[in-house]
């Protein structure tokens, strides 16, 4: 079984541990063994060290990366922001002078960045290493007839020159679409597919601007796809879709019920037959009806069942 360092970040282990649980449950049956990176810290988030000092950013990111290097592992993260921050820091560390400066800082905590671990998003691991066929083989329920609107999120797409795995066209990403279609579900296109959801620094700086952007994306999804659910590979987008739809509904700014939203590995875990009380337990929006539809016994794939 292929081992990979599981870098958790902040939101997933602390606020959405059901996403962590879904990651831990789906990978071994698909032939990947996640290995904990004991003592891993924040990537660090854009609003912290990256907003103050480049070398401190690179030092904190590099420390996280060394936790995988010392075990001879690549890094896999479920959080788009972490993926972006770690990938960019690794890119900055290719500059010899920066690497020397940062390694002097790391030496004080008995660490050294070597650049031997690659940074992957879990979507990349599932898409490139596991592959669609293996995902299909692992399904317990066929999601045929269900309609999914996908949200890839910004930080696994741009800037493509710093990422180990790239989309063919980052403005029209297809990795998450392929992953969702592997479950049997339908994934219709919508015009604001590549648009930002408004989470992140924007939401903490000006919530109304964030909601304005979010609403435009959401309405595009609803009107153009009438999806049964939204599926994302970004834990920040997940929080925005789950927190902000009820706000817009409450204010009367949308005239439809909030669309249930899942992180991709939650959807896959449900389709693989995992217990929803462990892998999809925490959300503002009630997901019980769509979970019941996903795990409806009429969807059971006979060979597996």
């Amino acid at each position: 079984m292929e081992k990979i360092g599981l870098y958790l970040g902040c939101n997933i282990p602390l606020k959405a541990p059901d996403i962590e649980q879904s990651i831990r449950q789906i990978l071994p049956p698909l032939g990947v063994e996640p290995v904990d990176l004991e003592g891993a810290a924040c990537c660090p988030a854009w609003g912290t060290a990256p907003s103050f000092d480049l070398d401190t950013w690179c030092a904190v990111s590099s420390r996280n990366i060394t936790l995988a290097e010392e075990q001879g592992l690549d890094i896999m993260t479920g959080c788009n922001s972490c993926f972006g921050v770690l990938s960019e820091a690794k890119h900055f560390m290719e500059d010899g002078e920066r690497r020397r400066t940062v390694n002097q800082k790391l030496a004080k905590i008995n660490r050294s960045f070597e650049g031997t671990s690659d940074i992957y998003h879990i979507a990349h691991v599932l898409h490139k290493k596991v592959g669609m066929e293996k995902i299909r083989e692992g399904l317990k329920f066929d999601l045929g007839g269900l309609k999914i609107a996908v949200q890839t999120g910004c930080h696994s797409l741009w800037p493509s020159d710093v990422y180990a795995v790239k989309e063919e066209n980052p403005y029209q990403p297809t990795i998450l679409k392929d992953l969702c279609e592997a479950t049997g579900a339908e994934v219709p296109h919508y015009s604001r597919l590549g648009a930002c959801c408004g989470m992140g620094g924007m939401r903490s700086t000006d919530m109304e601007k964030s909601l304005k952007l979010f609403k435009e994306k959401l309405v595009s999804i609803k009107e153009e796809t009438d999806a049964d659910m939204i599926v994302t590979t970004c834990s920040s987008c997940f929080l925005q879709f789950d927190m902000s739809q009820p706000i817009l509904r409450e204010r009367g700014e949308i005239d439809f019920e909030p669309l249930p939203t899942f992180y991709y590995t939650q959807l896959l875990a449900l389709a693989m037959g995992c217990d929803p009380s462990q892998v999809a337990a925490l959300s503002q929006i009630d997901r019980s009806a769509i979970i019941a539809r996903i795990q409806d016994e009429q969807r059971l794939i006979k060979e597996v069942a």
């Binding site: 282990p13 602390l14 891993a40 810290a41 660090p44």
Partner: peptide, 27 residues
């Protein structure tokens, strides 16, 4: 060590994970 921090123990127990994550949170 976490920019976003809330005590996760109850939520983690609820979903069947060890209360303490393998991160810097309590390390």
């Amino acid at each position: 060590g976490h920019a976003v921090f809330t005590d996760p123990k109850e939520l983690r127990r609820q979903v069947g994970l060890p209360e303490v994550p393998p991160t810097s949170a309590f390390n």
